[in-house]
Design a protein around this nucleic acid. Structure first.
Lengths: 144, 144
DNA sequence: ATTGTAGTTGAGATTAAATTGCAATTAGGA
DNA sequence: TCCTAATTGCAATTTAATCTCAACTACAAT
């Protein structure tokens, strides 16, 4: 059973890079969020031990290593998501309360492949985000 | 037949804002690109007449007025697209040559609506971008 | 266990995008 | 034509993100 740390370590090793305590802490904290997070949230929890520069540098490595992914931008800040061991999914974003709903729709994935084929396009990654109002916020809009 | 200027003027009027020469020029230039553009490209063509600040301020108004749309970010710069009088579409982005291919796939749109219904979600807008290699770049990768 | 070295870190400087404050200017209704 | 609130350009500012560099350290070779 391969752990996130195993994966990160082997990515680093393959590039002649080192597994440092800072990188270990950042990996653990990123995992702790179990989903979406941004640099500020991470920095807030690690500021006593780790500088912003190192956080930025490490996030970039975690992306290259396939452990996290940059998702949509939120208020002009880069936003990340832990992807190790998780299936690909897309997002609904509530523009009122900020809630993020993950969904997976295989038919959409299939259709995307078809589109790519149609254009001779070789897809590497894709991102689908739908902005709107979540169920609760839709209701409160109708009422109020 | 309603023109882009009509639409922008009526948006401005509805908010008690003014239709200035600067706004007129920016609207025309944005339209001239017939598709995707960023602030730099616009500024390059208008620098003699219009300041960067005004371009940023006007783009924001054009977005609110429904004439342009912020699309994906490209190299950390906001990128816009003229949408007035055009149908919604999604994008394929070549990460090698930078080419942008627009496509429209109604089945994907339909499926998105279904997903939203499933979650009681009221969609306002969505964005689907697929990154990869365009036909030419795919070929040159195989060769080289 | 020791050593050597290439990679890493933190602090602060730097870059670049985008926003803001303000005095001078102007659109457009009265 | 006049009046006023909106707009503009400029420069200063803000903010995210990157970079520089001296001090430090992981880790492989010895």
């Amino acid at each position: 059973m391969i752990t996130p740390e195993d994966k990160f370590r082997s990515y680093l090793k393959s590039r002649g890079l080192k597994f440092t305590p800072q990188r270990s802490f950042i990996l653990k904290e990123a995992f702790f969020f179990q989903g979406h997070f941004n640099v500020d949230q991470l920095y807030e929890k690690l500021r006593k031990r780790i500088s912003r520069a190192t956080i930025y540098r490490t996030l970039s490595l975690l992306v290259k290593g396939g452990l996290i992914e940059e998702t949509f931008r939120c208020q002009d800040k880069g936003s990340y998501e832990y992807i190790f061991g998780r299936k690909h999914h897309d997002h609904l974003l509530c523009i009122k309360c900020g809630k993020i709903i993950e969904f997976r729709e295989d038919k959409i994935e299939k259709l995307q492949e078809e589109v790519c084929k149609r254009y001779g396009f070789t897809p590497i990654e894709h991102r689908l985000g739908i902005k709107g109002y979540c169920e609760e916020c839709s209701k409160s809009l109708k009422k109020g």
